[in-house]
Design a protein around this nucleic acid. Structure first.
Lengths: 213, 213
DNA sequence: ACCTGAACACCGTTCAAGT
DNA sequence: ACCTGAACACCGTTCAAGT
């Protein structure tokens, strides 16, 4: 139930890479998360194992279990760090434009961390960046004039679309990249996602103008 | 590239369970798929291993590899068998009602096979039941008056919603069921899904009446 | 043609033992 | 307080060997 800090990347961003050496007691939980983020960017979330994490840290062994209860908690922490990279627009942006911006940026961020969207589909961690994001969404929808039940439903279905789209895009992209390398692009994928997002937003706009529900 | 048969359950539906004994040469690929479906219903897709499959078949060993190239192919076959359980409405049903019926039934079917929705999000197998479903969707949308690009995009975003929703529902349901057993229900989940589906359909209806795109 | 079981390279996790 | 490495129970897959 411990709440980790929000920022993760700052400490190691200047070193450039290569497993640095840790003096006794110098390693922290945030270092695990940073290593997890690096492995995820390079190899994807499902190649992130406890043993690879140790190797990435230059640690010969299982001392990572001292900082993290189990692999599940590590995945939650890495997932929340990824959510922390999503930029929330200012509060005075109109509700539908606010949603377009968050979900467009969310897609871009999640595409950089293959497999994380899939994890977020299955886990509600309650960690700070996740809370910040979902509270921002709820506030925006309420401010847009939707009642609590409607904004909760809208929030969840929009999340399904985002996580589902990114998961599918990454899977088919890496599948075709295996056959035909150097062609991993998401151009028409973006059009499909924007289309789906706009469908939902248009549905929400109709809900407002036509109060038959 | 071999195309398996569409029906899978018929042969073993009467036996009631228990690993029957197979005489030499009696085992078929369909028997593997049936066993895979049973394991998936009971334990979920990610607990389906090649060793458990062998155990479910009463086979002491790895002879399953004789009928299937690797685990990936088995998962594709099981996934396609699940898609085969989705009922397609008759062709004269109006396009939006047709879509509501398929996706509602699709959700019900996928909820019976935990983890399969997640697999379908990542894999386009090209197997017969998948083709049947996607061709039905395409035909319905075209008949509804949408051009090819629009119906392709609509089809994909609706699939993202379905697979994403089911994946999320099952994950949180089993998570709360672990803490509080006998309470695995999907009642308000259904409302959320119906809401999201209706948002998209309303967006599509707007696209038809307002030809500004 | 079909079946067997040992073997290899991986997993997550635990635990007694070190400093 | 922090680190180590062996050990256990799993994986997917291969392969020589059986019938």
């Amino acid at each position: 139930m411990s709440q980790p800090k929000v920022g993760h990347e700052a400490a190691t961003s200047g070193t450039g890479g290569g497993p640095r050496v840790w003096r006794y007691g110098e390693l922290t939980r945030d270092d695990l998360v940073d290593a997890g983020l690096r492995i995820t960017r390079r190899q994807g979330f499902d190649h992130l194992s406890m043993r690879k994490l140790a190797a990435e840290l230059g640690s010969p062994s299982m001392n990572t279990y001292y900082y993290v209860r189990n692999k599940g908690q590590l995945l939650d922490l890495v997932g929340d760090a990824v959510l922390g990279e999503i930029v929330l627009p200012p509060a005075d942006v109109p509700w539908d434009r606010w949603l377009t911006q968050v979900f467009t940026d969310g897609r871009t961020v999640l595409l950089r961390y293959p497999g994380v969207a899939q994890h977020l589909l299955r886990r509600v961690s309650g960690l700070p960046n996740e809370r910040r994001l979902y509270q921002g969404l709820a506030a925006t929808l309420r401010q847009g004039g939707f009642d609590e039940a409607t904004s909760d439903r809208a929030q969840r279905t929009l999340a399904y679309l985002l996580f589902g789209a990114v998961t599918s895009e990454l899977a088919t992209a890496t599948a075709t990249a295996a056959n035909e390398p150097d062609t991993m692009s998401f151009s028409d994928d973006a059009e499909v996602f924007d289309f789906g997002l706009e469908l939902m937003l248009e549905g929400l706009r109709q809900l407002r103008t036509d109060p038959s529900e």
